[in-house]
Amino acid sequence: MLSEKELERYKHPIAVPGMGIGLQETLKTSRVLVIGAGGLGGPVIQYLSAAGTGVIGIADYGVILEEDLHRQPLFNMQDLRKHKAKMAASRLFSFNPWNKHYPILLQVKPDNVEQVISGFDLVIDCSQHRATHLVVSDACLLHNKPFMTGEVHNWMAWWGGFNMPLDSGARSGSYRCSEMQIDEFRNFDAGAMGATHGASALLMVNEVIKYLAGVPGLAGKLHTFDYLHQKFEVSELAADAAGIAAVKARGLLTAEEYGLEIVPDVED
Score class of each variant (00 low, 15 high):
Met1Gln: 09
Leu2Ala: 09
Ser3Met: 09
Glu4Lys: 09
Arg9Tyr: 03
Tyr10Glu: 02
Tyr10Leu: 09
Lys11Asp: 14
Pro13Gln: 14
Ala15Asn: 09
Gly18Trp: 02
Leu23Ser: 06
Leu23Gly: 03
Thr26Tyr: 01
Thr29Asn: 15
Arg31Gly: 04
Leu33Gly: 01
Val34His: 01
Gly38His: 00
Gly39Glu: 05
Gly39Cys: 12
Gly42Asn: 08
Pro43Ile: 11
Leu48Pro: 00
Ser49Lys: 00
Thr53Pro: 00
Gly57Ile: 07
Ala59His: 02
Ile64Phe: 06
Ile64Val: 13
Glu66Thr: 12
Leu69Pro: 05
Phe75Trp: 02
Met77Ile: 15
Asp79Ala: 10
Leu80Arg: 04
Leu80Asn: 04
Leu80Asp: 05
Lys82His: 13
His83Gly: 09
Lys84Ile: 10
Lys86Val: 12
Met87Ser: 07
Ala88Asn: 01
Ser90Trp: 04
Phe93Ile: 09
Phe93Pro: 00
Phe93Ala: 13
Phe93His: 14
Pro97Val: 14
Asn99Glu: 05
Asn99His: 04
His101Thr: 07
Pro103Asp: 08
Leu105Ile: 10
Leu106Ser: 09
Gln107Val: 11
Pro110Ile: 10
Pro110Lys: 03
Pro110Ala: 13
Asp111Glu: 15
Asn112Gln: 08
Val113Glu: 04
Ser118Ile: 03
Ser118Tyr: 04
Ser118His: 09
Gly119Trp: 02
Asp121Arg: 05
Val123Arg: 01
Ser127Tyr: 02
His129Cys: 10
His129Tyr: 11
Arg130Asp: 14
Arg130Cys: 10
Thr132Trp: 04
Thr132Arg: 05
Val136Cys: 07
Asp138Thr: 08
Lys145Pro: 02
Lys145Leu: 14
Lys145Trp: 02
Pro146Gly: 12
Thr149Leu: 10
Gly150Asn: 08
Val152Ser: 07
His153Cys: 15
Met156Leu: 15
Gly161Arg: 02
Asn163Ala: 11
Met164Val: 11
Met164Thr: 07
Asp167Ser: 15
Ser172Asn: 07
Arg176Gln: 12
Ile182Asn: 01
Glu184Pro: 00
Phe188Arg: 09
Asp189Gln: 10
Ala190Lys: 06
Gly191Pro: 08
Gly191Met: 11
Gly191Asp: 05
Ala192Arg: 05
Gly194Arg: 04
Ala199Ile: 15
Leu203Pro: 01
Leu203Gly: 09
Leu203Val: 12
Met204Tyr: 02
Val205Pro: 01
Val208Thr: 14
Ile209Tyr: 02
Ile209Val: 15
Lys210Tyr: 02
Tyr211Val: 07
Ala213Gly: 13
Pro216Glu: 11
Pro216Ala: 14
Gly220His: 03
Leu222Val: 12
Leu222Arg: 02
His223Asp: 06
Thr224Asn: 06
Thr224Ala: 13
Phe225Lys: 00
Phe225Met: 15
Asp226Tyr: 05
Asp226Cys: 10
Leu228Cys: 14
Gln230Leu: 15
Lys231Ser: 14
Ser235Asn: 13
Glu236Leu: 14
Ala238Glu: 13
Ala238Val: 15
Ala238Lys: 12
Ala239Pro: 01
Asp240Met: 09
Asp240His: 10
Ala241Leu: 14
Ala242Asn: 12
Ile244Cys: 12
Ile244Ala: 13
Ala245His: 06
Lys248Tyr: 05
Arg250Phe: 07
Gly251Thr: 09
Leu253Phe: 04
Glu257Lys: 07
Glu261Trp: 07
Val263Ser: 11
Glu267His: 10
